[in-house]
């Protein structure tokens, strides 16, 4: 379980990182290392150069402007879990792995890794967020719906680096997940965000990319069951070691009910 040899470049700035990435044939960004290093240890990849972005200054900021959280790519899961500016992101980050994973793992790394069961890609999509990406030809902005292409696949090209993340702060939100043990990757997770009368509900763990259902925010008796039911009908999960397709569909319905409970307000019952 020793990593294959590689050259190490400690980047001093985003430009320096992008130049180092572009200069080598098979280079990779090293951020928190919580997904990349296991891949190297298992020798599932053999990059020639690792570009360590951890010491690039100014990429760990968190601030809200015009209702949007602007977060640096190097914000650690632990810091995201502690902040109060974006409570949905905080709740999701707190559900990632264990303390030792959260103290190293980064927001940019989780989005770039794009694990179908990961929490933060689901939150990015629920909030209709975007990543800011630096590359050899300058910077561009990629929306959540375009970023995730498939399991562990994004729209990013090899010498590109996520530098920042934009997450709209929802008017109401909910988050629920089921994992086999505390801290494990979720079997299914649901993130719900309401912006005005728009509702975005995202399910993680049921497809290669976070699965989105967008509706106008319903209200009224039975709205909760209606959306949860629609979502469970909409997903098309497959079976694996961690759960059958039927189990995942049932989890989608139940977790959606829990996540949506705080988002959909049902009219108060008439006293009987």
């Amino acid at each position: 379980m020793k990593c294959p040899p590689f050259e190490y470049h400690r980047a001093t700035s985003v430009d320096d990182a992008v130049a180092a990435l572009a200069a080598a044939e098979d280079s990779k960004i090293l951020a928190g290392g919580q997904s990349l290093v296991p891949v190297l240890a298992l020798r599932l990849a053999r990059p020639t150069v690792l570009v360590d972005v951890n010491r690039i200054p100014g990429l760990d900021g968190l601030d809200v402007r015009d209702g949007v959280l602007h977060a640096g790519a190097l914000v650690r899961h632990a810091a995201l879990a502690r902040q109060a500016l974006h409570p949905l992101a905080a709740a999701a980050a707190a559900s990632i792995g264990h303390a030792a994973i959260r103290s190293r793992g980064t927001l940019g790394g989780s989005l770039a890794h794009a694990d179908p069961a990961a929490e933060l890609p689901a939150v990015l999509r629920a909030c209709d967020g975007a990543v800011v990406v630096a590359g050899p030809d300058g910077t561009r902005r990629v929306g959540a719906d375009a970023l995730f292409v498939g399991a562990l696949q994004t729209d990013l090209a090899e010498p590109e680096m996520i530098t920042g993340v934009e997450l709209g702060v929802p008017d109401a939100w909910g988050f629920a997940e089921f994992a086999r043990r505390h801290g494990d990757f979720a079997v299914v997770s649901v993130a719900a965000a309401r912006f005005g009368d728009r509702l975005r509900v995202v399910v993680g763990g049921v497809a290669g990319v976070p699965h989105l259902l967008e509706t106008s925010a319903p209200s009224g008796t039975g709205a909760l069951d209606e959306v949860a039911g629609a979502l469970a009908d909409d997903v098309d999960p497959s079976s694996d070691l961690h759960g059958s397709a039927g189990h995942r569909r049932a989890l989608t319905r139940e977790l959606a009910r829990r996540a949506l409970a705080d988002v959909i307000t049902e009219p108060a019952r008439e006293p009987t």
């Binding site: 190490y8 400690r10 090293l30 290392g33 919580q34 290093v37 360590d52 030792a100 190293r104």
Partner: peptide, 19 residues
């Protein structure tokens, strides 16, 4: 392999010494 890095818990098998 858990150790504390500047006071924070980390997996020492997922961190290169150069980092």
């Amino acid at each position: 392999c858990t150790v504390l890095l500047d006071g924070e818990p980390v997996r020492a098998c997922l961190l290169f010494a150069v980092q």
